[in-house]
Amino acid sequence: MRRASTAMLLLAVTAGALTVCGEAVASPSAAATPSSASAPRTASAVPASGHQAGSSTLHMIKNHGHRLAFHVTSGHLPAIVLDAGGGNDSSYWKDLVPKLSAATGSEIITYDRAGMGDSDPVPGPWNVHAATDDLAAGLHQLGLNRDVILASHSEAGEIATYFARSHPTMVSGAVLIDASLPELYTDSEIARIVAATQPALAAAEADPSTQANRQLIATAESYVPMHKAYHHVTWPDSVPATVMVSEKTPFDGSPQDAQLWRDAATEFAHAGPHRTLVTAAGSSHDIPIDRPGLVLGEIEKMAATRG
């Protein structure tokens, strides 16, 4: 239970998953050129002249004084944003991006949240509203204001929920991949998670020198109030969503919590129109790693029907 809940606090971050690196960029010149605000995209957008299809270009986006790394693989609308779970950066999607680009022809965007990969750290407790604002700023500066599909894993489900609520006309649809959903966070479940995480948090506070421990501390500082508020947040009915839930969940070592995770996905799927529940049989919480074909297929479906 302690191991499962520690992972839950960062939403399925393991010691191995925390040691990650940024996604490769298309060329040194592309990596050195920050992006600036540009005109909104049109449905006929195509890869820039001279840009190899399937390769990505790094754009360093500025928001409230810090820089965020956005990796863009050129294509047409709808644009597909892949958002990794807690403790992972854009490299989490490195094997899926070229396949998704080839299958859909869509523009594919991955990015590093603040403090991850090539993005600047931001001091203080982790704040989902700031993270949502970072994503909005990045997409705006990349010229995207419509026809966006969110594919959000784990902790990124919280960002997707707030983003869809604040930009419902911008989001065409979402694929929520074993995502953290509001229905899970009853007062009793929050208390269970916090209590079980205390030993790991104490160890992190004793050695805050590593990125992993600093992230754990930052997440823990805001965890209770943020998730009490999140429990009352609803997904907008106008935005279709495919809800993918793993068989093993982040709580593979705790049957009670694993069932609550699956129940939350089911409740979310039944709570509004245009929602589909998909179970990834045999998969761990890392469905994009264990069942990449399933994830690819569901994103393709959403892009084909909602773009």
Rank of each mutant, 00 (worst) to 15 (best):
N145S: 15
A131D: 10
S44I: 02
S91F: 12
P40I: 00
T161E: 15
Y111C: 08
R146M: 01
R67D: 09
T104W: 08
G124S: 04
D133R: 06
I108W: 04
L58D: 01
K62A: 07
S90F: 11
F70N: 06
M116N: 08
S101T: 13
L150M: 15
D83I: 12
E107W: 06
R41N: 01
I61G: 03
P123C: 04
P123A: 07
N88D: 12
D89Q: 12
G54R: 02
H129D: 09
L96S: 11
Y92A: 14
A69W: 03
L100R: 08
A48E: 08
T57L: 02
L150I: 15
D118P: 00
S38F: 00
G143S: 12
K62L: 03
R41L: 10
S35I: 01
S91W: 12
T57H: 03
G54N: 02
D134H: 05
V72G: 07
A84K: 09
V148R: 13
I61W: 01
V128A: 08
T104E: 10
L100I: 10
T104R: 08
A131M: 06
A160I: 09
R113K: 08
A84S: 15
A151V: 14
S56W: 00
G138L: 05
P98V: 10
H140M: 05
G87T: 11
L68S: 08
N63V: 04
V97A: 10
S166P: 12
A43P: 00
G143C: 12
L96V: 13
T132D: 04
H76E: 09
V97D: 11
P78R: 11
T161A: 15
V122Y: 02
A103V: 08
T110L: 08
P47E: 05
R146H: 14
S35A: 10
L135Y: 03
S55K: 04
G65F: 02
G117S: 04
F163K: 14
D95L: 13
A79V: 13
G85F: 13
A79H: 09
V46E: 08
H59D: 06
A103S: 13
N63M: 00
K99E: 14
W93M: 13
G117W: 02
I109H: 07
N145D: 15
P121T: 04
A164D: 14
T132S: 07
A136T: 02
S55M: 01
Q52P: 00
V122L: 07
A102G: 10
D112N: 07
A43Y: 01
H66E: 05
I109P: 09
T132I: 01
G75R: 06
T132W: 01
G115C: 07
